[in-house]
Write a protein that binds this DNA or RNA. Structure first.
Length: 376
RNA sequence: GGGUGAGUAGCGAAGUGGUCAAACGCAGCAGACUGUAAAUCUGUUACUUCGGUUUCGGGGGUUCGAAUCCCUCCUCACCCA
């Protein structure tokens, strides 16, 4: 276990596997379950670190692939690590770049050694291996590093996935061997797609290895909703109860609440910030597309009762409509902050509900308010 | 007063005799976005009872057929007096 790192479970909901806990890190504690905003390039787009913290966020994500290209891991290391570099005093986590390889799928070439793919910036041929990624993540120096995995596409054959999972597991061992920083936690990543046997086996084998936490990967890459629910169930089953569980890349309300119900502690997603920038705002009664003409003269506050800087600041829908239509930076900021605050408030409600042993009910009531099964 | 050039859909701008209801860009309208190649992407934008109907400054003409050729008028820009 990494220095100063650990999960403390305070309470399990009586009606499901949802757990209330605290994640201890060298940069402070976080209440679980939690939503983690994504700051790929060492910034949550348009929002200062202090503002992110004020929204109630614990961990901020950064991406080792992106940072390794610019400004390079060496520069971040010279700055004293990503927290000092971006001046965030809370805990951080770096993703390994496994997801980017999936995202840049056209250019990939997977071998036992690693993955070759092309830079999205200049097309340069890059090669990531478990060892090179561990080197990058240790230089960047976040509190939590992620293993380098293969995020297989969906759908693939059982045979393909079996090979892919086996390789991801071999890479997980190599990541452990290459990871020497004692002040940085390392999480393993459960893959296996929609195959129950592979998900369960992958989780079981990772659980036997000395990781500080476990994450569920390979979801939200285009598969149907019911498949996504299944993947989480399969993966969670064999994960150790006393280690943090992290569902990667999930930010829609229904998936988050489903994950919490099953005992997942951590979620991250670009959804709130990206949707915000594009004018799709999350509210307790569903999604508001603020660009729509109907909001041009809607002088109501975005969401009554919301304590985000946009709503608490008294900014109207008409004003946000105007700002987003004009691509004004302030509009991107306000809308991003609103969505992040909204998701974090849902998590705060979840924690309260777990403490009161009524999370299943909370989940049902929250979903019912949205008017559609996905939330937004 | 004389000359030259130009007037095309909300705006800008292609098109110079048929395949033009008219490229493309912008604006508009609607939608998508899930470990951020993402302030991006997709669809749509004369009218229509979906059979068609009326458009390319106005009017008239040539032609089987005109945004495209001719006449005339209007407007704008520039040049010469």
């Amino acid at each position: 276990m990494a220095e100063g790192f650990g999960l403390e479970i305070l309470h399990k909901d009586a009606g499901c596997n949802a757990r209330l806990g605290v994640l201890h890190t060298l940069h402070g504690d976080c209440e679980l379950p939690m939503f983690m905003p994504v700051g790929t390039l060492a910034t949550v787009k348009h929002i200062s670190p202090a503002e992110v913290k004020a929204l109630g966020a614990g961990v901020i994500l950064a991406n080792s692939y992106h940072l390794s290209l610019r400004p390079t891991a060496e520069v971040v290391a010279k700055a004293g690590g990503v927290q000092k570099f971006m001046r965030y005093d809370g805990p951080m986590l770096t993703d390994s770049g496994g997801f980017q390889v999936w995202s840049l799928a056209k250019n990939k070439g997977i071998t036992e050694e690693g993955i070759q793919f092309r830079s999205h910036l200049d097309g340069a041929l890059l090669k990531f291996t478990p060892e090179s990624v561990m080197d990058i993540e240790q230089k960047i120096g976040a509190d939590i590093a992620m293993c380098f995995d293969e995020c297989a596409p969906y759908p693939v054959t059982h045979e393909y996935m079996e090979n892919s999972v086996a390789r991801t597991l071999r890479w997980a061992r190599r990541c452990l061997a290459a990871h020497t920083r004692k002040d940085q936690a390392l999480f393993g990543i459960v893959q296996g797609g929609d195959f129950q046997d592979l998900r369960e086996a992958c989780a079981a084998e990772l659980a036997s290895l000395p990781f500080d936490g476990y994450s569920i990967g390979g979801t939200s890459i285009g598969e149907p909703r019911e498949v996504e629910y299944r993947m989480v169930s399969y993966a969670v089953k064999n994960l150790p109860w006393d280690k943090p569980r992290y569902l990667m890349g999930v930010g829609s309300i229904d998936m988050i609440l489903d994950g919490v119900y099953k005992g997942v502690d951590m979620f991250d997603c670009v959804l709130p910030t990206r949707l915000g920038r594009h004018g799709a705002l999350m509210t307790a009664t569903g999604r508001i597309n603020i660009k729509a003409a109907q909001y041009a003269e809607d002088f109501r506050i975005l969401e009554e009762g919301c304590d985000c800087p946009a709503c608490a600041g008294g900014f109207t829908r008409a004003y946000l409509h105007h700002l987003i239509k004009c691509d004004e930076g302030f509009g991107l900021r306000l809308c991003s902050m609103h969505n992040i605050r909204f998701l974090i408030r849902v998590m705060e409600g979840a924690r309260k509900a777990i403490a009161a042993d009524c999370f299943p009910q909370y989940r049902e009531e929250t979903m019912a308010r949205f008017g559609n099964e996905r939330g937004f």
